[in-house]
Design a protein around this nucleic acid. Structure first.
Lengths: 152, 152
DNA sequence: GTGCTTGCAAACGTTTTGCAGACTC
DNA sequence: GAGTCTGCAAAACGTTTGCAAGCAC
């Protein structure tokens, strides 16, 4: 396991723009490249959940030669820096979004509909897990499956 | 999506033993084969969470020719019959166990430690999701990640 | 004998990796 | 110039599928 080794402080402050993130990258010994900038622009411009493949398509609209593996490598690094997080919403590919807007997810196992769940919803569970097991939950990573209104 | 099409009633009664499950299989037009019986024995004998590969190894200890794909196909059918469920506890392979003992999971993202979470822990969240979104959660499928006592 | 089930090999979708060349600083 | 980053191809991983032979009923 140990999927977030060496990650820096959560939701690092001062990373509200593409250029601020690039400055952070530089601070950590990274280079500022055009694929990195384009990926960040895609992430900042539309704040939804997107798979690596979808992000690659957006980047490739500007720079067709950027390879999917570059997208994965850059997402990895941005995750290590605490700028991006990924979540699993179902059995398909992971989805990525800015760490700043992190939240839980309810996903219908019937139709795939997704509801963004504000963190407060998890406060009770969070408290109980802490009290009973000394366990600090992070409700963002895996979706909570179930049935939505329409599929019940 | 729609990962559980045509699944019969949850936690079907009278499937507390290998032979009872095999009777159920037969009722649904399935055949009783030795690989099926061995897989069920593995599932009933040790009630932990195991991956398809681990179950295959256990079955192969008795019948070396049983192929991993047979394990997957049988697990699939048993899941359709409501006898088995699978859960995702991390980034690796899915784990399978008997549906009768279904429960939620807390998994440490640092060390991988897993805590079985009784359903009552999710009652609050369950209620809120129903009230706010008309969403009926199934807290068993994806683990809730976080940090365990030792890794905090 | 019907038709479900199996072993095998091959494919799948997602993600990771090794490498040599290209780039940033 | 040192060291990071890239494109590409190939591999890795867990899982699914097509097929012809084999088995349960």
């Amino acid at each position: 396991m140990n999927r977030s080794p060496g990650r820096s402080d959560d939701a690092a402050p001062g990373v509200g723009t593409v250029e601020e993130v690039l400055a952070l990258v530089r601070e950590h010994g990274g280079r500022v490249t055009s694929s990195r900038r384009l990926l960040l622009r895609a992430l900042f411009d539309t704040p939804g959940h997107r798979t690596a493949e979808e992000l690659a398509e957006e980047v490739q609209a500007q720079a067709p030669d950027v390879h999917l593996s570059t997208i994965y490598r850059n997402l990895d690094e941005l995750e290590r820096l605490g700028v991006v997080v990924h979540a699993h919403l179902g059995h398909g590919p992971a989805t990525y979004h800015l760490a700043a807007g992190a939240h839980g997810h309810f996903v219908c196992e019937e139709c795939g509909a997704m509801i963004e769940a504000p963190d407060e919803l998890f406060q009770g569970l969070s408290q109980t897990a802490r009290d009973r097991f000394d366990f600090e939950i992070n409700p963002h990573h895996f979706a909570v499956l179930g049935r939505c209104r329409d599929c019940r």
